[in-house]
Design a protein around this nucleic acid. Structure first.
Length: 234
DNA sequence: GCATTAATTCTGT
DNA sequence: ACAGAATTAATGC
């Protein structure tokens, strides 16, 4: 089977968005957890809160952000269905110093440290594997973000993000505001706005307000590797 | 349930 | 930083 160059990107592009389509590893252990439902835009966890265990996200979306003393925030990643929050802190025996905020109505299950280590991990290896996958995803996101912020221009980073997210979500419409994307990539909101309006002029994106809609996914893929993205003049 | 208005968020310059 | 557009929440009918 011939593999196009675009498809190779699919396996190499890493975006700060963690989501697992296959949640079957968790089916048998949900009974051990506590089900929680959160409304949209709810702060679920603050740095000063204690970490009692892990949180498995069944549906919805949660933003994980680091915060400075004076309220500045930098989003680290967004977590969707199938992902887990807090396993790194739990295994490292450290407090979790981030803000968790729901972006959508979210359903989650919490598992205490004790339940996890005594009732789940010894008997459900698939869950352990899922936790490792989740942890690995975070590692890759952080290292990739550092690399991209050093080596790539803003348009390149925005383009990679949009393209990678389209593939990951298998959707051309991404319900994210410019500000959210900017927080996520660590660039100014205005730069994101300028880049996106440029991409609309070129015809890569549709001119929809609220959210971003990719018009031509192949053109976007081509844009990534071309020098257009590197040299951007507003 | 529906229409208006107030508040908040988003976007482009 | 600001203004206009666009959503969303709140209110009254």
């Amino acid at each position: 089977m011939p593999v196009s160059s675009e498809e190779e990107f699919e396996h190499t592009l890493i975006v700060p968005w963690i989501e697992f389509k296959d949640q079957s590893a968790w089916d048998d252990v949900l009974q051990f957890g506590h089900r929680i439902e959160w409304r949209q835009k709810t702060v679920v966890h603050r740095p000063e809160d204690d970490v009692t265990g892990i949180i498995f996200i069944l549906s919805g979306m949660v933003k994980v952000a680091a915060a400075s003393r004076d309220g500045l925030q930098r989003t680290l990643w967004l977590m969707g269905p199938g992902s887990v929050i807090g396993e790194a802190a739990m295994f490292a025996h450290r407090p979790y110093m981030h803000f968790f905020t729901t972006m959508e109505p979210t359903v989650a299950y919490t598992f205490s440290r004790q339940i996890l280590s005594q009732n789940i991990l010894p008997h459900f290896p698939k869950v352990g594997e899922a936790l490792l996958s989740n942890l690995a995803a975070k590692c890759y996101i952080m290292s990739t973000q550092v690399e991209e912020s050093v080596f790539l221009t803003v348009p390149q980073r925005v383009a990679r993000f949009l393209y990678g997210l389209c593939l990951a979500r298998n959707s051309l419409h991404l319900p994210l505001s410019h500000g959210t994307i900017a927080d996520l990539l660590g660039i100014h909101r205005v730069s994101v706005s300028n880049t996106i309006s440029l991409m609309k002029r070129i015809g890569l994106l549709d001119d929809t307000s609220h959210g971003v809609t990719v018009n031509d996914i192949n053109a976007l893929a081509a844009f990534l590797s071309k020098s257009d993205a590197a040299s951007f003049h507003p």
